[in-house]
């Protein structure tokens, strides 16, 4: 009869196992990158330019003769690092702002909400493009820009659940005790919205990868010669019309596999939460 405070264990379906496996795989290669790839991802080889996939270069080589497989494997690092860092910023600040705006309605909360709304009126791709142009492209810029642009989204989600929770009578009971507002927020409300925050973090991670890759693809993210999926596609995109598909196809596949896996996991956690 005793109910554990832990979230109900996830029902592991085959699909979920595959998704988890893919995410773990990319996490693994992003950590051990250079140690396990067959070639140096930065090594230029004029002799081996634009080789189609073969036994030696399973994913072929790019215009500078670099091994695509090695670059795809090592390229998972920048995208995962940037999106994780951005998600951390967004979730932590978004939660703080969301808790505040949800529990202390008033003048300041209204101003906050209005500013968030202004940010959310524009697609993140567009806004981050502007910001990156202004600040100059670099990993740090991308992390900051995505992190900051996601704060309003997280804050709005958190605010909505906090609003709902604060109407529940357990909060009223805590007020009557009387508990201080900060204690109520941290002790009473926060444990009840942790599930939402976990779901939101997973969803945000997926979108952070989405935006990171898109910015790289537009040449506004990670700069050459760092191996990076979006950047690899950006660099080799011009060759596509000449029939050279492999330097573009494999990184595209890598992005798709990662974001799909993460979002399906997010979906499952979400359904579990309800």
């Amino acid at each position: 009869m005793l109910r554990l405070p832990l979230p109900v264990p996830l029902k592991i379906s085959p699909l979920l196992m595959i998704c988890g496996g893919i995410v773990l795989f990319w996490a693994f290669v992003s950590i051990f990158g250079e140690m396990i790839v067959p070639h140096n991802p930065l090594a230029i080889s004029v002799m081996e330019r634009l080789q189609p996939p073969s036994a030696k270069h399973i994913f072929g080589t790019d215009a500078l003769g670099r091994d695509v497989l090695s670059r795809v494997f090592v390229g998972s690092r920048s995208v995962l690092f940037i999106s994780l860092a951005a998600t951390t910023i967004a979730i932590s600040w978004g939660t703080i702002f969301g808790l505040y705006a949800g529990y202390f309605p008033g003048y300041l909360s209204d101003v906050l909400l209005r500013i968030f709304e202004a940010f959310m009126a524009l697609p993140v791709v567009l806004l981050s493009m502007v910001a990156v142009v202004a600040l100059g492209p670099s990993s740090i810029t991308v992390i900051l820009v995505i992190g900051i642009l996601f704060i309003p989204v997280v804050a709005k989600t958190v605010r909505a659940v906090v609003l709902g929770e604060s109407k529940r009578t357990y909060v009223a009971a805590a007020r009557l005790l009387p508990e201080r507002p900060l204690v109520i927020l941290v002790r009473e409300v926060l444990p009840n919205i942790s599930g939402t925050i976990v779901v939101e973090a997973t969803v945000r991670l997926g979108y952070a990868i989405f935006i990171t890759a898109t910015l790289s693809f537009l040449g506004l993210g990670v700069q050459p010669p760092t191996p990076d999926w979006g950047l690899m596609i950006y660099e080799s995109f011009g060759l596509v019309s000449a029939g050279i598909w492999w330097p573009v196809f494999f990184p595209a596949l890598a992005i798709a596999s990662l974001v799909i896996s993460i979002s399906l996991i997010a979906e499952r956690i979400f359904r579990n939460e309800r």
Binding site: R168, T169, Y170, A172, A173, A174, L176, E188, P191, N192
Partner: peptide, 15 residues
């Protein structure tokens, strides 16, 4: 002054 609410599943923090 304390209060007892209508729905105890709402007035007790489930966590």
């Amino acid at each position: 002054i304390q209060m007892v609410f209508q729905d105890p599943s709402d007035s007790l923090n489930p966590k």
